[in-house]
Write a protein that binds this DNA or RNA. Structure first.
Lengths: 200, 200
DNA sequence: CTCAAATTTGAGTGATCGCTCAAAATATAT
DNA sequence: ATATATTTTGAGCGATCACTCAAATTTGAG
């Protein structure tokens, strides 16, 4: 009956995510998006409603991929704490060239959008809360498996780890810090492994 | 011979700092600045050259105040490690209402400006390097005073603390995290105090 | 092939961006 | 007062912003 869209929605969203992740919301113009997505404004608006709507979709994609990334490392089995530690080593070892930005897109969003922004700011906070909840869940499992002492507080620990994760990735965004990131990541990773009852 | 400027440069810069700190570079328009500084564009440009120039000045002011803040806490004498720990507790205990943003303005700048920005991004990195150097120096003093073990590496430790500081403040920027910030700060502070040879 | 439904296009919308500069206003010196 | 030096003002510059929409294009159905 009708024409079908020529673009691949997933690929387009991935391109938008990369661009927004690298440049942020305000510094990314529609001209930039037209180039990156190879779409004209009419199509972009038909597909996503607004620049903000597109950013929101890109954020959700980012969040999903990030959580999948953690899950993937955890799925290798073995110690939960080692899994978290390895995930941090993974982030610490990323090459600047292979990623749009070393900092977390959720954090970049939270820092860029004003406190009273009802949409993107709120969404980013919700998604980062999800990430922290996932971390809490893994720690609870570690506790159930006897790896983490029963005296430990998974929620509290998740907050500490989340803070260090956020810090590490913002730290790594600095060009100057290039050489020091892996060491900082390693220190964080070892701190987590040291929580194990089997450790030292 | 001539008219003298009616504005107080220090006060104006403070206002610009507060506004930029809260809203970031891109989201702050000249209209916003005209209102906040109570100055018309001609005067602003005569005084600071450009929006970017004004931001740079504001960033330098921020950096100076931040370093002074650390120095002030340290000047109370006593243990260096306790000083750093108290500085972190101070940041953790800040009220959202009393500060333009809970996140560090230097970090916000680094995350907002593109990697290849030669001006503001480079400046922010230089200034945050200074902060880390100041931290390193305090740790070296702690070592000289026998508080920190000779086996410790002040530079490496400074990187860890800097990472946690950055993380804490970005974590605290979240509205949702409001109630959890003080605890995260306390955990970081205790971790630093635990470095002392006199500790446990 | 013809028609209908959907998508793509890109020129053009009003608004706002950072910024300029000639004119007006003001302070100081004589 | 007058003259001179400096600052302040704000209308308005070209550029760019996010976004719209009528026309052109493309597809599938009958």
């Amino acid at each position: 009956m009708a024409r079908q869209a020529t673009y691949d929605r997933d690929k387009v969203l991935k391109s938008a995510m990369d661009l927004f992740w690298a440049k942020g919301f305000h510094a990314t113009s529609l001209k930039d998006l037209e180039n990156a997505l190879d779409m004209r404004p009419g199509s972009i608006y038909a597909a996503f409603g607004s620049k903000e709507g597109l950013y929101a979709e890109a954020l959700r994609l980012y969040s999903g991929r990030t959580q999948a990334g953690l899950a993937e490392v955890m799925a290798k089995g073995g110690s939960k704490l080692k899994g978290i530690a390895d995930y941090i080593r993974l982030l610490g070892g990323q090459n600047r060239a292979e990623v749009p930005s070393r900092a977390c897109m959720l954090v970049k969003t939270i820092l860029e959008m004003p406190d009273d922004d009802p949409n993107l700011r709120g969404l980013a906070e919700d998604l980062i809360d999800q990430m922290e909840a996932a971390l809490t869940e893994v720690l609870r499992q570690a506790q159930n498996e006897g790896e983490l002492p029963t005296s430990a507080d998974p929620m509290r620990l998740a907050g500490q780890i989340q803070t260090q994760l956020i810090g590490l990735r913002a730290y790594a965004q600095r060009i100057h810090a290039e050489g020091r990131v892996a060491q900082v990541a390693e220190d964080i990773a070892q701190g987590i492994e040291a929580l194990s009852v089997k450790a030292a």
